[in-house]
Computed example of a mutant assay.
Amino acid sequence: MATTLDRLHVGDRARIVCISVPDAALLDRLADRGLVRGTAVRIQEQALFGGPILIAVRGSLLALRRREAAGIQVERIFDTYEG
């Protein structure tokens, strides 16, 4: 089931399905930072009162504005391993 990155909670993991942002320059900046279709991300932290979201992507941490995260459609990744 697809949702957007801004609707996830701390610790949630997801894979990017589609990025829909109105600005082509923003789309290029996100791609430069590794946010492309198929990339796995994890929500690291969320600021209070609508502040930025910190995500772990490809070994780095990236802060996104909530309105940017709202344009990134993702599918949650559920780990079934219980080692």
Rank of each mutant, 00 (worst) to 15 (best):
V21W: 00
V21Y: 00
P22W: 07
P22V: 09
P22R: 08
P22S: 08
D23V: 07
D23Q: 08
D23Y: 09
A24W: 02
A24L: 12
A25C: 07
A25I: 13
A25Q: 12
A25L: 10
L26Q: 09
L26K: 07
L27F: 14
L27P: 10
D28N: 12
D28T: 13
D28L: 07
D28Y: 05
R29A: 05
R29C: 02
L30P: 03
A31P: 01
A31F: 04
A31H: 12
A31N: 13
D32G: 15
D32Y: 05
R33T: 00
R33H: 10
R33S: 11
R33W: 04
R33E: 12
R33Q: 14
R33P: 00
R33K: 07
R33G: 01
G34A: 06
G34C: 12
G34Q: 04
G34F: 01
G34D: 15
G34V: 09
L35E: 12
L35I: 02
L35F: 06
L35D: 08
V36G: 14
V36K: 08
R37M: 01
R37V: 07
R37Y: 04
R37W: 05
G38P: 10
G38L: 02
T39P: 05
T39L: 10
T39A: 13
T39G: 00
T39C: 06
A40R: 12
A40S: 10
V41N: 07
V41P: 04
V41F: 02
V41Q: 06
R42N: 05
R42W: 05
R42T: 11
I43P: 00
I43R: 00
Q44G: 09
Q44S: 13
Q44T: 06
Q44L: 07
Q44H: 07
Q44I: 04
E45S: 13
E45K: 12
E45T: 08
E45Y: 14
Q46F: 10
Q46M: 15
Q46I: 12
A47N: 12
A47M: 13
A47R: 08
A47F: 11
A47W: 10
A47I: 05
L48V: 13
F49H: 12
G50F: 04
G50E: 04
G50H: 06
G50W: 01
G51E: 04
G51F: 05
G51W: 04
P52D: 05
P52G: 01
P52M: 00
P52C: 00
I53W: 00
I53E: 03
L54C: 06
L54F: 01
L54A: 11
I55Y: 10
I55W: 08
I55H: 01
A56R: 10
A56F: 05
A56E: 15
V57T: 15
V57G: 03
V57F: 03
R58H: 09
R58Q: 09
R58T: 11
R58D: 14
R58S: 15
R58N: 15
G59W: 05
G59F: 08
S60N: 14
S60M: 15
S60V: 14
L61W: 08
L61G: 12
L61T: 09
L61E: 10
L61Y: 10
L61H: 15
L61R: 14
L62D: 03
A63E: 03
A63F: 05
A63Y: 00
A63T: 02
A63D: 01
A63M: 04
L64G: 06
L64K: 06
L64E: 03
L64I: 08
L64R: 10
